[in-house]
């Protein structure tokens, strides 16, 4: 029990940058390059943490708080979500609302820090971030509705552990729709390619990168790390839908979980390699499609 808790925290803290490494490796393979080493994201974050910081005189404490609060909020969300077949460290009835709004809090502070710099570009990024969040949040709640309806429970732990039972009881169709919807939500929330391009530094096309443009040194490192952890938490949510198998052996289940996360990261890499970023005014269409898919899943369950 205690060992599982320790593994949970170790994975939550140590694994996120590895996912970024896998995504970049897959993209490099598709482009015919050798690509940066798998652990490059760890090196980057380590290097940034050792550097000095330049902070604009026009900013206030909000600018400093942005990445820190974001990381804290995402970490708390990570303690609420069960990884693989194991129970979450913290679990209570209704924690799904806290889970969703911890991301809201993280977003609020990221965008506030961006607005705090007074830069026009960062304001633009903040505006885009919240605009798309308006659409991805209801989609996330519809996903939770489907799980609640399937399991009859309001706590993330029970809800997500019961979801695979749907594969036996014939609720596969809604779960497939939810998986597609959740994948789109994940790409939007973590600013991956069809929605945002994490590699460009072109002010007109990006969302997340533009908001952390003024952060440097340790703050930028924390922002990068928080983004990676967000990817980790949302992928583990998606993995609950995709991977219903349970071996019974603790170490094997952890291995299956880690393997599943890597497969999801690889899939994101493939999507990023074969798709172009959507034009900014077409992003809402994708997100509305996600809402509709999750809504259709709910309709399928209740009809």
């Amino acid at each position: 029990m205690i060992i599982n808790l320790i593994v949970h925290f170790c994975l939550l803290i140590l694994m996120p940058p590895l996912l970024l490494g896998i995504i970049n490796k897959v993209k490099a393979l598709f482009a015919g390059r050798r690509g940066p080493p798998l652990l490059q994201a760890y090196f980057d974050i380590g290097k940034l943490l050792r550097k000095g910081m330049v902070i604009s005189r026009s900013t206030t404490w909000v600018f400093m708080a942005g990445p820190v609060v974001t990381l804290a909020a995402v970490f708390c969300a990570g303690t609420l979500i069960p990884l693989g077949r194991f129970a979450a460290p913290i679990s209570f009835t209704g924690d799904l609302v806290l889970f969703a709004y911890l991301f809201g809090l993280a977003r609020f502070f990221t965008t506030s820090a961006a607005l705090d710099t007074g830069s026009a570009f960062e304001g633009m990024g903040a505006a885009r971030e919240v605009t798309f969040a308006v659409l991805s949040e209801p989609a996330l709640f519809l996903v939770f509705f489907v799980f609640v309806r399937l399991s009859g429970s309001l706590s993330l732990g029970e809800m997500l552990h019961l979801a695979p039972a749907g594969y036996v009881s014939g609720a596969v169709a809604p779960l497939v729709l939810v998986a597609i919807g959740l994948f789109i939500i994940m790409l939007a929330e973590t600013c991956r390619i069809p929605v945002d391009d994490p590699n460009t530094h072109l002010e007109l096309t990006m969302i997340h990168e533009v908001m952390v443009l003024d952060h440097s040194g340790p703050l930028l490192g924390i922002a990068l790390y928080a983004a990676a952890m967000k990817l980790f938490v949302l992928s583990s949510l998606l993995l609950h839908v995709l991977q219903p198998f349970k071996s019974g052996l603790a170490w094997l289940d952890w291995l299956i979980f880690a393997g599943g996360m890597m497969v999801i990261a690889g899939t994101i890499g493939v999507v990023e390699s074969v798709m172009a970023r959507l034009r900014m005014n077409h992003v809402p269409h994708l997100l509305v499609a996600a809402i509709i898919l999750c809504g259709a899943a709910f309709v399928l369950l209740v009809r």
């Binding site: 594969y167 014939g170 596969v172 169709a173 809604p174 497939v176 729709l177 597609i180 077409h282 269409h285 994708l286 509305v288 499609a289 509709i292 898919l293 259709a296 399928l300």
Partner: peptide, 20 residues
């Protein structure tokens, strides 16, 4: 039936993507 339903809902999802 699971496989059939899976294929059918993916068809429904593709409908939406074709529209958008």
């Amino acid at each position: 039936p699971n496989l059939v339903n899976t294929i059918l809902v993916i068809v429904l999802a593709l409908n939406l993507f074709a529209l958008g």
